[in-house]
Each structure stands twice: as C-alpha cells, then as structure tokens.
Design a protein around this nucleic acid. Structure first.
Lengths: 333, 333
DNA sequence: TTGAAAGCGCTAACAT
DNA sequence: ATGTTAGCGCTTTCAA
C-alpha cells in the first residue's frame, strides 16, 4: 500500500506538501499540486484512516446507539444514518444498547478512546452522568426522541399533535368511544402521545380514565391491552395505540377475538413503520418521517463536529396521517 | 486522558513493560506487574484503540456488509453479529451495500485502509474480483448463504432439505396441488429451495411447471405471484414461498381475493423472521437459526483473524419446521 | 510556497 | 526481566 511518503518521493516534494494538497489547506503552488495529484493517481494512493485518526485525535466514524435493531422502528433509521454518514465519508458503528446494559465499560468510554467522531443516541438509556461525560470530553452528540431542551440537540417529531390528529381521525371515521394504549411512561414520546389523547377526548361524555391502558411499545403489550380493553369495555369502537407495534398487536388480538376491523373497531397506530403496510387490513397510522429524522440527526452531528455551535437545539419534524384500511368505516368520508 | 507513558512514569517502569502487561506477552516480574496494574487503576487508563490499530496495522473492528438492513431478515442477523463481536471486544461497522452500489470506492478498499479486522458478507453483490482482492490483501472474511466452496468460509443452512420439509408438511396437511414462488435465480439459496421443491413434487401427477412462478424475495413479488397463481390455477391448495417475505405477500394477496388461509390454501414460508409471528393467521415456516448463523459467522471470522487456517470451510446449519396457523387444515394431524 | 521534524499513543525488535 | 528506540502513516508547527 502506498503511503504519503511514497507519494512525496514520486512527486519530488515533501510529505507536508502532499498533506497540504490532501487536506486543501495551506498554500501550494498549482504546479506542485499537479505533480502531487499525478503521483497520487499513479500510486492509487488513499490516505490511511487510522493514521489520520491518530494524528487528528478524531476518526471519520460515528456511533449509532439504539435499544435494539430488531425493533422494527430502527432499521430504517439506521439505514438513513448510514447512508447520509457515508455520503460524507463517515462510517457508522452500530450499538444495541439493550444487549449490553450490564457491561462494565460503558459504550461511551469505549467510543471515546476509539476517537469516535460523534454519537447519535436513539436509546432511552442515556443517563445524566453520560451527558456530563460527553460534555466534559467534548464529544459531539445528538439525541432522538427527547423532550425539547437546551442541554443538547434533539431531533424529534410532533407527538402531541400527532396524537390529536389520530383521535380526530378516529372521530371523523365515526368512532364514538376511543381507547388508548400508551407506552412506557419513562419514554417521553409515549407520554406526549398519551397527553395528546387525553386533551382530545377529555371533553367528551363517554370519556373515562379506564379507556387508557398501559402497553410496553411491543407487540405483546398491544395484544394484552387490547384484549383487556375489549373484555372490560365491549362498546369501544376505536383504539389509538401509542405506537405501531402495539397497534399491530391490538389488531391481532381483535382478529383472534372475532372482532372485525375496521367495521366494529377502528385502529390507528403511530410511527409509520413498514409493518403497517404488510398486515391485512393495513394499518392507519400517524407517520413520522423516520428516514428524514435519521438523516437530519447525522447532518446536525456533522455540523457539530465541524464546530458549528449555533445549531438549533431542537428540531421537531411534522407527522402525517396515513389513512389505510384499519379505519375505513365508510362514515363521513 | 492518560497514556501508556503516564502509566509507565507512575509505575516507575518503561512503556514497553506496561505494554507487556497490557498484552500479557513477554516476561514480567509479578511485582512490577502489580505496580503497573496499580498505576493503570489509579489513572483509569485505557489503551487507545486508534494508536493500537496503527501500530498493529489492524483494528478491533469488523464490518458487516448486507444488502439492506430494512429487509426483515437482517436485523436479527446484525444483532447477533454485534453481540458476539462485542463480547470479544470488537465493534462492528454496518454497510448497506445496495445503497452504495454505484459508488466509486468500493467498501472493501475503504475498509482495508481503515485496517478493518475482518468482514462478514451477507450480500450477494460479492464479485470474484472482490474475493481476489480480499485474498491478495489477506483480509479475513466469511460469507453467508453461498454455495459450499473451498474458496472461502461459508455459513449457510440446509435450504434444499428445508424446501423438502416444507413440501412434505404441506402434503401432510392435506394439500393436493402445491405451487412454489421462487426467489431470484442469481441468489443461490433461492435456487436450492426451488430445487428442493421440484425434487419433491416432480413425481406427482398433478405437478406442472406452471406451478412454479418467480418472485423477488420481497413482499410485492409474493403478492403478484400469488395473485397470478390463483387466477390461472384456482385449484391450488398449497403455496410454498421461497422466503417469508414473499409468503406474507402471498397471504396478503389471498386474503384480498377472499381466499381463506389455511382452509382453502395453506401457505408455508422460509426463514423464520419475526414477521411470521406478527401477522394473522401466523405463518408456518422453515426457520433458519438466524441468530446462530450470525454468531457462528463472527466466531469463524475471529478464528481466522487469530490465524487458524484450518477452520472448516463450510458450516451448514439445520433448519426446522415451525407449524403455525397458515397450514393448520385439521387434516392428518 | 515548501521542507524538516516533532508528535499522536502504541507495539515490537533489539539491547542490556 | 526490563529498557531504548524505531517505527505505524499522517498532521502541523516552525523555519527557511
């Protein structure tokens, strides 16, 4: 493999000159630049990433930390991150946080000593002490799905408004008794969606707190919640689930109970994952721009790495109602 | 951040001694070892991965190259890879090959100049010239889902036998006219499964070549193929799809056509992805041990990195029939 | 505008 | 058993 020294020798210049043309900094005569470019070409030279990393104390690698890549929300997100990162010359290291919770060395320390360029957190297992560590060591990072804050950059979407959109749509579809399956309270987005539901239905006389039941943001939780809901409140005719996975679970449970969707009960989810288009009937959902969120997170991160300190701290993206079979009850439309 | 020099100074020894205790090679007096260990502890020292990489011409990073992480087969695979790799101290870089097909610099060259430890290929876009390049530059690698070969290590599963298992199960379930939706011929596993189907049904008088229709290993292909199949051959009562995604597509198409599954047509897929448990009715499938395949691939790769040259070249894992609703026709069981 | 040389933090001969 | 030192390949002062 050719090194910068080989190039320098062949071009008849010093390594520092080669380095200058490589990094396009410092003054370099056009003529020598051409000689260098020529030598680079002829040797098929490619600067070594590791050596660069060592000299710069910083590598062209980003880390994406997420709870679990097998959760259907994350493949598209990680694809976006990888795509955009690569477009800018960065590689991305994948970290399934849930699988390594009890480990002695935290991801962050490991990444730091590997001179990682920056980190995207799509996990909820980010502790205040981690934030301190990141700040103390000046590691650029971006967080997804957190509360608006000035502490760090956040990429998120309009969960509250999305939930209102869902309820309104269910109402418009002719539902008169809408239940909600909410996600884990410690997950901020789950609470926002729940709040959106509450504020939308509170004024109706049919509303009772029992119409809100907890789920776990997983398939199973959605199934159980829906089952319980229908057993206790057979007159429910609409379910708004806090995420698509639970919505699919709810659908599954209803089908098994012989309840027709959307005729007897309409279902609306949240997220807009691929799964909603796979099942039958297809699921109406409040779609987040998942790919865009990942792409934006990378761009913000790269901006931070480049030193821009004035990046907006909170980036809130719009959600959109995607109407599909699971809420088509032929009413009012 | 503490460096090896700081440790050496604090312990009152030289850097090479510290290096020796770090890497547990060379002789070192127990007493001095303790002093060093103590200094490491007190400084909270952690050897720098990048510097190590540069000195060794090799980093503790693996690459996983797959077609597209949003294909539901790959999240579990990549989780396995990441888990096992990390257990051995390695990080893994994710590469969506399909998204970067037209790019000038190939992944492999990029990875090489980043001193990658090794590569796992779960993509089919691996050309002979890539193999040459890898061998020439002595980059350890393992390939998934390829034909048995002596050229390189392969991790795969019994596709042929699995297909036979599928057909036999469909037959046992009372099917008398079984169609097959096969995957892209350039994908070797697809051909093997197709061959298994052919060899299983050829002897039956109901068999006709038209019962085999092409799919694309995606949802859409499965839908279209199933639709076409049922329109042209309404007496089909069983479908064996070359993978789960197409099986799910087939199910979707049949449901839309008002055809009952499994009562009128039974469906069996192949792979054992999560999706098969999510849909309703749940899908019978020939399950590959996806996690184990990923885990094994890493272990073989690490073995190669460590220098073992005598690793078996082909690792073929067993598949298993997972019977679910989509083939429960109440016959013969 | 260009070059010499000192790192970046670690490993591994080679010496002692 | 331990230390000295020359790299690994690149960046970046500092001089010229």
């Amino acid at each position: 493999m050719a090194t910068i020294r080989d190039v320098a020798k062949l071009a008849g210049v010093s390594v520092s000159t080669v380095s200058r043309v490589l990094n396009k900094n410092g003054y370099v005569h056009t003529e020598t630049e051409n000689k260098v470019a020529d030598a680079i070409q002829r040797l098929d030279y490619e600067p070594n990433a590791v050596a660069r990393g060592l000299a710069n104390q910083k590598t062209m690698t980003l880390a994406l930390i997420l709870p679990d890549i097998t959760n259907p929300y994350f493949p598209l997100l990680s694809k976006a991150v990888e795509n955009v990162a690569r477009a800018y010359g960065y590689s991305v290291i994948l970290c399934n946080a849930d699988d390594h919770l009890g480990e002695p060395k935290s991801y962050i320390e490991l990444l730091r000593q590997a001179y990682i360029g920056g980190i995207i957190f799509a996990t909820h297992a980010l502790e205040p002490q981690d934030i301190d560590y990141l700040n103390k060591h000046q590691i650029p990072f971006v967080v997804l799905d957190r509360a608006p804050t000035r502490q760090y950059s956040v990429v998120r979407s309009r969960n509250y408004e999305g939930a209102k959109l869902a309820v309104r749509h269910l109402l418009d579809s002719g539902c008169r008794q809408i239940a909600h399956i909410y996600g884990p309270p410690e997950i901020f987005t789950a609470s926002e969606r729940r709040q959106g539901y509450m504020d939308s239905v509170q004024a109706y006389d049919w509303y009772r707190p029992e119409l809100m039941v907890p789920g776990d943001f997983q398939l199973e939780g959605g199934m159980e919640a829906a089952k319980q809901l229908m057993e206790r409140h057979p007159d429910i005719d609409g379910i708004f689930a806090g995420n698509d996975l639970m919505a699919v679970g709810a659908l599954k449970a209803l089908l098994r109970m012989g309840i027709k969707v959307p005729e007897q009960v309409a279902i609306c989810g949240f997220d807009g994952i691929f799964l909603t288009e796979v099942i039958e009937p297809e699921l109406t959902t409040i779609a987040q721009p998942i790919y865009e969120m990942g792409a934006l997170a990378v761009k913000i991160l790269l901006g931070k790495i480049a030193g821009s300190d004035d990046l907006d701290q909170v980036h809130e993206l719009e959600v959109s109602l995607v109407v599909r079979q699971s809420t088509k009850r032929g009413k009012l439309e």
